[in-house]
Amino acid sequence: MVRHEDEKRLSMTDAAPATRPPSRTGGSRAGGARDRVGHRRGEQAQQPFHRPPPLPEDVAARGLVVTVDGWRLGLAICYEAAVPQHAADTAALGIDAYVASTLYGSGPGVEARRDAHMRERAAAHGSWVILATAAGPSGSFAETSGGSGIWGRSGELVAQASRNADEMTTARLC
């Protein structure tokens, strides 16, 4: 949950990936956003980064931006947040924040890689980065990195949760 300058709450509870039937290009996950009263604001199929380039008709599907309370939020699902070009394509649509729902496993260097991805996206595009990432066990992962957080427009870490699955973090966006 993130609070911005007028103290309204923005809920990204539906930003987590959900399994969907495969698309024509092989994308199989979708995410979206709901506003604070529960209305859907958009949906996006995950881009297939390990397949041939998308078909021309899929170009328009890249980089979903939803507007909630005047804030333009660019959404990233899982691996998309690790791909600089996805962030660049999304930022080119004009965003206030890049919002990513991810899962990083655990192990040597994972936390540093996760934080570097988010710091680089913020600094490269001058936008806030908000990361909602799994904490605790998830699916086939006995342990995940946790570390949901918020990075400022210059790439500085503003707030970050720990590996504790019950923890959340907030920050004022302005």
Score class of each variant (00 low, 15 high):
residue 79 Y to V: 11
residue 17 P to C: 04
residue 64 L to P: 13
residue 100 A to M: 08
residue 55 L to S: 14
residue 29 R to N: 07
residue 101 S to C: 10
residue 58 D to F: 09
residue 129 V to C: 11
residue 22 P to V: 06
residue 30 A to K: 07
residue 93 L to I: 11
residue 107 G to Q: 11
residue 24 R to C: 05
residue 100 A to V: 14
residue 56 P to S: 11
residue 32 G to V: 09
residue 129 V to G: 08
residue 120 E to Q: 13
residue 45 A to H: 06
residue 71 W to I: 15
residue 127 S to M: 04
residue 81 A to C: 08
residue 59 V to Y: 05
residue 15 A to W: 04
residue 92 A to D: 07
residue 42 G to D: 02
residue 59 V to H: 03
residue 8 K to S: 14
residue 67 T to N: 06
residue 53 P to D: 13
residue 39 H to G: 08
residue 77 I to Y: 01
residue 60 A to R: 09
residue 62 R to P: 00
residue 66 V to G: 08
residue 110 V to S: 02
residue 58 D to W: 03
residue 119 R to H: 10
residue 112 A to Y: 00
residue 9 R to V: 14
residue 101 S to G: 15
residue 111 E to Q: 13
residue 78 C to A: 05
residue 108 P to C: 03
residue 110 V to G: 08
residue 9 R to F: 05
residue 91 A to S: 12
residue 79 Y to P: 01
residue 96 D to K: 09
residue 9 R to P: 10
residue 97 A to K: 08
residue 43 E to M: 11
residue 39 H to P: 04
residue 123 A to C: 08
residue 75 L to A: 03
residue 76 A to D: 01
residue 87 A to K: 03
residue 24 R to Y: 00
residue 55 L to K: 14
residue 55 L to I: 04
residue 50 H to K: 07
residue 94 G to K: 07
residue 63 G to S: 10
residue 116 A to N: 10
residue 15 A to Q: 08
residue 97 A to M: 03
residue 91 A to Y: 02
residue 31 G to H: 11
residue 46 Q to K: 09
residue 21 P to R: 00
residue 21 P to S: 13
residue 73 L to V: 15
residue 96 D to G: 15
residue 64 L to S: 11
residue 38 G to N: 11
residue 47 Q to H: 12
residue 95 I to M: 07
residue 26 G to R: 02
residue 111 E to M: 08
residue 50 H to C: 03
residue 20 R to P: 01
residue 110 V to D: 04
residue 12 M to L: 15
residue 26 G to F: 02
residue 20 R to W: 11
residue 10 L to N: 02
residue 97 A to E: 02
residue 15 A to F: 03
residue 32 G to C: 07
residue 62 R to D: 05
residue 33 A to P: 09
residue 55 L to H: 13
residue 75 L to K: 04
residue 43 E to R: 13
residue 109 G to K: 04
residue 73 L to D: 00
residue 84 P to D: 09
residue 12 M to C: 10
residue 21 P to T: 14
residue 29 R to D: 08
residue 85 Q to T: 12
residue 114 R to D: 03
residue 36 R to H: 09
residue 89 D to K: 03
residue 75 L to V: 11
residue 102 T to I: 12
residue 92 A to Y: 00
residue 70 G to S: 08
residue 82 A to G: 07
residue 41 R to N: 01
residue 50 H to L: 04
residue 49 F to L: 05
residue 84 P to A: 10
residue 99 V to R: 05
residue 117 H to R: 04
residue 20 R to C: 14
residue 64 L to I: 10
residue 38 G to C: 06
residue 58 D to V: 11
residue 85 Q to G: 00
residue 20 R to N: 12
residue 119 R to P: 03
residue 94 G to E: 00
residue 87 A to T: 07
residue 33 A to Y: 02
residue 56 P to T: 12
residue 94 G to F: 01
residue 36 R to E: 00
residue 12 M to A: 14
residue 119 R to K: 14
residue 26 G to M: 02
residue 41 R to D: 01
residue 49 F to R: 01
residue 23 S to R: 00
residue 123 A to K: 13
residue 46 Q to S: 14
residue 98 Y to F: 15
residue 63 G to T: 13
residue 27 G to C: 03
